[in-house]
Design a protein around this nucleic acid. Structure first.
Lengths: 250, 250
DNA sequence: ATGATTTTGATAGAAAATGATTGAATCATG
DNA sequence: CATGATTCAATCATTTTCTATCAAAATCAT
């Protein structure tokens, strides 16, 4: 049985029952205990469930589409490292802008500064932020389902009432000539405006984004500092002259 | 039986009754007394209940009467009926404003109209709305944790870019002289503005709200139609002359 | 095929959960 | 207040589950 199939079985089981025992999964999959434990570890790492002593438990508010599994689990460890480093840059009393997106979401776990104000256009960030007791302001606007981002006129006008010490932005493409890009033009506009309103700007991007170009232009390279997980030497030279790059390693 | 399952059983029991005896839990879970005592310790440590001699008691906020809690859960069925009726008022192509709050949230399940645009300041409504495929716009502003509502300047300015066919508003108090009221002044301002921007306005309120007065004034009675679950005849006469009241029965 | 990488199943020691038992603390009753 | 009955916290041995590790099997790229 394929790993993917087992993962699907486990997640389907969790749709029925809020907790499942390891033995149930073993019976259903005809695999060893070790394999199931590994599956559960991976699914927990990718935030699809919570391991508990004796099995696994559903965690609420999680959309479990098959396509989501791969997408979300790719580079999660890297994103987490990037997020951890980015969070460490935040200082007491800062006002920060947190862009929608999976990488910026990883920052929230590591936000331990007191007296912090966060503005975000990512509505899936909200519950995590509030659970940590962080004073949070949401932009308004159209709630785009595919990226969980608030965009459009509401978001742009909402931004105008804030100024930020630091902005943390996710992008899809980083390119020496084309700069920072993202597929959706409207999302690009929001990111762009947030950048213009912030004293310091940090782009959070794993290594897969370098060399890519998307449709919507956000900004030029030199308008932000890049935080990434690794960078090949031969690729690096195209970027180093244009902006500052912080490479985070484990 | 897994720890998490027992904890769930215990907490569910406490939703029904305000105090429970250890023996009841033992019978329901087929575990030993020691185990249950450990469970109760952990749940108390996590502030989910309070241990008392002989069992456990529900933990309540200082302002909440024990009777109020039971009333709140009892009224869930009523709220659902109110929500269902309110949803049935919506027509094809409407733009509606959905206030934050538990009663308006019940409407979402029953929203079956196509070509509908929803604007809301309740950020806990979002996932339900998007899951139903409804085009949703969120107000911006400060995310108030206790009521899951967006309030403040961001919410008020965000409202200005919309006009509504119908607005569905939750309130805490309905009174012949004081009109509609709610405890938080800032939330009241948002509700007030939404009312002013809407052609038709509906107040969703179960019967416990009649005769109550809270701190923040929202509007006068005649500015909206009230949807409620029941209304005593002797109370009714104080309101009927001032506004339209729709009583929903099962 | 060949070797490299990934996946798997098995195992042993560590950690956690459980049930029983003890004596102390608390309660209800006269 | 004295008494017995209950309930409690603390402890222990046992069982279950978990983590870490390793070697066999399967998969993959060449």
């Amino acid at each position: 049985m394929l790993t993917q199939q087992r993962h699907r079985i486990i997640l389907d089981l969790l749709k029925e029952k809020s907790v499942i025992k390891i033995q149930e999964i073993i019976d259903l999959t005809n695999t060893s205990e070790s394999t199931i434990r590994r599956d559960l570890s991976q699914l927990e790492e990718s935030r699809f469930l919570k391991r508990i002593h004796g099995g696994a438990a559903r965690l609420q508010g999680k959309l479990q589409e098959p396509s989501m599994i791969e997408k979300a689990s790719i580079n999660l460890q890297e994103k987490r490292l990037i997020g951890q480093y980015a969070a460490s840059l935040i200082e007491e009393g800062d006002s920060i802008y947190l862009d929608a997106g999976s990488t910026t979401k990883e920052m929230i776990d590591f936000l331990d500064v007191k007296d912090l104000a966060v503005v975000t256009n990512g509505f899936m960030h909200l519950s995590d932020l509030l659970n940590k007791g962080i004073k949070t302001y949401l932009l308004g606007g159209y709630a785009k389902p595919s990226t969980n981002a608030l965009i459009g006129r509401g978001a742009l006008e909402g931004l105008e009432m804030y100024r930020f010490d630091k902005a943390f932005i996710g992008v899809n493409g980083i390119h020496p000539q084309s700069g920072y890009t993202t597929p959706d033009q409207e999302e690009a506009m929001v990111k762009q405006k947030a950048i213009n309103l912030s004293r310091d700007v940090f782009i959070l991007a794993d290594d897969s984004k370098f060399g890519e170009i998307s449709f919507g232009k956000i900004a030029d390279l030199n308008q932000a500092v890049i935080i990434t997980n690794k960078l090949e030497e031969d690729i690096s030279k195209h970027y180093k002259s244009k902006t500052t790059i912080k490479v985070v390693t484990s």
